[in-house]
């Protein structure tokens, strides 16, 4: 008998993560050969970005697209370590921390266990960087007096430390806010400045990337446990393939968008070691001590030790 699974995700059809969700379903359906069929529910028509975790936990859907920084910190705040500026240099290092480091494993396994979910594969959101509409961001002083938009609370201590005024604002309001000068700077993925046309107002970008935001395909644990082994195998195998392809693709796409941004007259400044050190100093002295509400000190320490090796 054919097993029918519902895969719900919030991304709009044109979004890179949505394309890979569809590709995931397509390959599973092909290889499942009538044993399993995945029906997809895109654009949050079933569950939104903040609702999907609960839906997976209760079994309202069998599979779901989950954004780590949105859905995991409400269950274990220490997952916020992912979003700490400059902590992990790429997706591979970030993922290894959660898979190989003892403290990382504890966070990762704890979240999946409490939410009764099974990891199927990666489908990342992308690398975050800082953009500005008014001036190049090559020194901490450049931020003084800027009006900064933040989405997650964890971003706020850094804006304050840099001397910027932070405003919380949903994504749909960013374009207008840039247009009328209500905000000057914010962190986002390169794809977003193109997708939302923010680059009409944004003029400067800062590299290296601040952090890498991961997203996942997860399954309801009880449902997964009851699957025949060959079906589990197919899900994990396709999950791994999609994980590798989507990660590569999102990084390439980010580079491509930044190139287009420069062609349009935008400026991307890659910080020199010296400039980077100035930011690291601010982070160490002013930002990290303020992050106690977001990440425990021992977790920050463990992550630092992990990346140092």
């Amino acid at each position: 008998e054919e097993i029918v699974a519902r895969l719900s995700y919030h991304w709009a059809p044109a979004h890179q993560s949505a394309i890979f969700c569809e590709e995931f379903a397509k390959r599973v359906n092909e290889r499942g050969e009538g044993k399993i069929r995945i029906e997809t529910f895109p654009s949050g028509q079933l569950f939104g970005i903040r609702e999907i975790m609960g839906a997976l936990s209760s079994g309202a859907v069998e599979l779901g697209g989950v954004v780590g920084v949105v859905s995991f910190p409400p269950v274990d705040k220490n997952y916020n370590v992912e979003a700490m500026p400059g902590m992990f240099k790429d997706f591979a290092q970030l993922r290894r921390f959660f898979q190989e480091d003892e403290t990382g494993q504890e966070i990762w396994n704890g979240v999946l266990k409490r939410t009764r979910t099974q990891f199927i594969g990666y489908n990342p959101t992308g690398p975050y960087m800082t953009f500005s509409a008014v001036r190049p961001l090559t020194s901490p002083e450049a931020f003084v007096g800027l009006k900064a938009r933040y989405l997650a609370g964890i971003e706020r201590p850094r804006w304050s430390a840099l001397g910027a005024d932070a405003v919380s604002m949903p994504t749909r309001e960013v374009y207008t806010a840039l247009q009328n000068g209500m905000i000057d700077t914010f962190n986002t993925v390169p794809a977003a400045i193109k997708a939302y046309s923010w680059w009409e107002h944004v003029k400067y970008g800062q590299l290296p990337f601040l952090f890498h935001a991961d997203a996942f395909t997860l399954a309801n644990q009880a449902w997964y446990d009851d699957l025949p082994d060959d079906v589990k195998q197919i899900l994990l195998e396709v999950g791994a393939e999609i994980g590798a392809e989507s990660t590569k693709s999102i990084m390439e796409f980010s580079t491509q968008v930044l190139n287009e941004f420069e062609e349009r007259g935008g400026q991307v400044d890659t910080l020199t070691d010296e400039q980077l050190a100035a930011f690291t100093k601010v982070d160490d002295e002013k930002v990290i001590p303020e992050l106690g509400d977001f990440v425990d000190a021992n977790v920050i320490e463990a992550a630092r030790a992990f990346v140092a090796n």
Binding site: E51, A55, S58, P170
Partner: peptide, 18 residues
């Protein structure tokens, strides 16, 4: 065959929309 709590979850999402 949905879990009962699904209804409550969607209602919660609907009424707490910004």
């Amino acid at each position: 065959n949905l879990p009962w709590s699904t209804l409550i979850q969607v209602a919660f999402g609907a009424v707490t929309k910004q």
